[in-house]
Write a protein that binds this DNA or RNA. Sequence first.
DNA 1: TGCATATTTGGCCATTTGTGCAAATGAAGG
DNA 2: CCTTCATTTGCACAAATGGCCAAATATGCA
Lengths: 114, 114
Amino acid sequence: MKAEDRKFFEAKAAVLKALAHPTRLWMVEQLESGEKCVCEFAELIDADFSTVSKHLTVLKQAGIVQDEKRGKQVYYSLKVPCVLNFIHCVEAVLSARALEHLSMTGQTDRPQIK
Amino acid sequence: MKAEDRKFFEAKAAVLKALAHPTRLWMVEQLESGEKCVCEFAELIDADFSTVSKHLTVLKQAGIVQDEKRGKQVYYSLKVPCVLNFIHCVEAVLSARALEHLSMTGQTDRPQIK
DNA sequence: TGCATATTTGGCCATTTGTGCAAATGAAGG
DNA sequence: CCTTCATTTGCACAAATGGCCAAATATGCA
């Protein structure tokens, strides 16, 4: 594999890595309905402000969200909405896996997406 | 956030995490053109067999690829082809970021990417 | 059988990641 | 200027990850 190709794969992997955390994934989905400030996120999940802030920084560095300071608050919003599409594909992976498991465990339900 | 929701986000994040590595991402893209055995991957990149094998195991656990043993070799193939679509979205994120860098280093105002 | 080939597994170690706490920054309004 | 509120940054530490080596496992063939 060429060095430039490697760079490209590293860059793409970095974007996926930013999304590959339950809290950050949740944040991205929250942003589907519009911008939110850090305090709103912190209120919805039970985590330290600094933790929330750091997760948002990771998403921002990856180029997935953008921030805007208005007054005392910082508002985050989706910068590349198509990320939502592929989260649906991730759900397809889970469904495929669930089907397999189903036939093994007999489970019939699965958490709902809102 | 409810416990079941958290589980769901953890599951989705786990799938993304499996893809969030340059080597594994490369492997998935290689599979676009059809199944490959472990030795083919090991040959194409310069890595230990055990390393290649472990990466493939991660992808398999995530439900992204499937394996089939035929003779002495184990062939891996894509199980959920739609993952390829969202890799394209990842590239869109990179493009947006590249545009932004351009405008930051250039003389004009920064255009908003939506 | 026994041997060669293909792949997986286990151990070990360096590096990265996630988290909370405490301290620092920055804006708004007395 | 001083205080307050919202957010970020630095620090420390536990946990997870990636990589290689060596050993184990599995398959096909002589």
